[in-house]
């Protein structure tokens, strides 16, 4: 199929960006969104032009590297999918597709569609861990964990840190990401010792990075490729209030 692409081009953070239009032909409905961009880049390289920079790694929907805003939706129109898992069968002949980077002050632009998400790493460093002595792997059933908690922890742990929640949030808030990490450890016995300090430190870092606050629109969860539920935010709020009250 033939497509009209409007892609954000920006050489680096210090230059002005703008949209550039491209006409792309022979796009297979079976190709993925990133393969479609590969096709464009091959043509750009052959024509001696600068290819479009975009992030990607696994292309299996598990690493969290890819991510662009496609026609106003982070990771595109399909729910519960990363951009690399989005297929071109969602589009038809003659469609115009506008592709933009994640736009957030805390995610400075590196080039074209690539942004710097190290703010997420610093939030994790602030408290998204449990301090245990490493050594040989413990016995799997040494610490009993109720099924319900194990399931909830697993749901939250599915977060791949892609940043779509921030990109989609009208407030540029990182609450869903931070809450997923907080409640994933908070559900487990191993996470209890540092529970209060963890939530306080991670929220503090989240705010320091310049993300906005949450107004419970629910846009984050709607675009999350791992469908992390909004409930984790409620749990993080509860944890923070408890941490402050029991200080």
């Amino acid at each position: 199929m033939k497509l009209k692409l409007r892609i954000w081009r920006q050489a680096n953070a210090d230059t002005q960006g703008r949209f550039q239009d491209y006409n792309l032909d022979h796009v297979s409905a079976d190709s993925s969104f990133l393969e479609m961009l590969d096709l464009l880049n091959e043509q750009l390289i052959q024509a001696g032009e600068e290819p479009v920079a975009f992030d990607h790694d696994c292309r299996e929907g598990i690493c969290g590297m890819c991510g662009v805003v496609i026609n106003g939706l982070a990771h595109g129109p399909a729910r519960g999918l990363t951009a690399c898992q989005l297929h071109m069968r969602h589009y038809k002949e003659g469609d115009t597709i506008t592709i933009e980077p994640w736009r957030a002050a805390a995610f400075p632009l590196i080039k074209d569609l690539v942004v710097d998400r190290s703010a997420f790493d610093r939030i994790i460093q602030a408290g998204g861990y449990v301090s245990v002595s490493t050594g040989s792997a413990p016995d799997a059933n040494a610490i009993p964990i109720p099924k319900k908690n194990a399931d909830l922890a697993m749901d939250a742990a599915a977060c791949i840190g892609c940043g779509a929640c921030v990109a989609a949030c009208p407030n540029g808030s990182a609450m869903l990401f931070t809450a997923a990490k907080v409640s994933h450890l908070g559900q487990l016995p191993q996470g209890q010792v540092e529970r209060h300090n963890r939530v306080a430190a991670m929220v503090r870092q989240m705010d320091a990075e310049g993300f906005g606050g949450c107004t419970n629109h629910g846009e984050c969860s709607a675009v999350c490729p791992k469908l992390i539920p909004l409930d984790v935010i409620g749990q993080m709020n509860r944890d923070l209030i408890r941490a402050v009250l029991s200080r």
Partner: peptide, 11 residues
């Protein structure tokens, strides 16, 4: 929130 999203999306 305004500061957190200085550049708006086109779509």
């Amino acid at each position: 929130a305004r500061k957190a999203r200085p550049d708006q999306y086109a779509v």
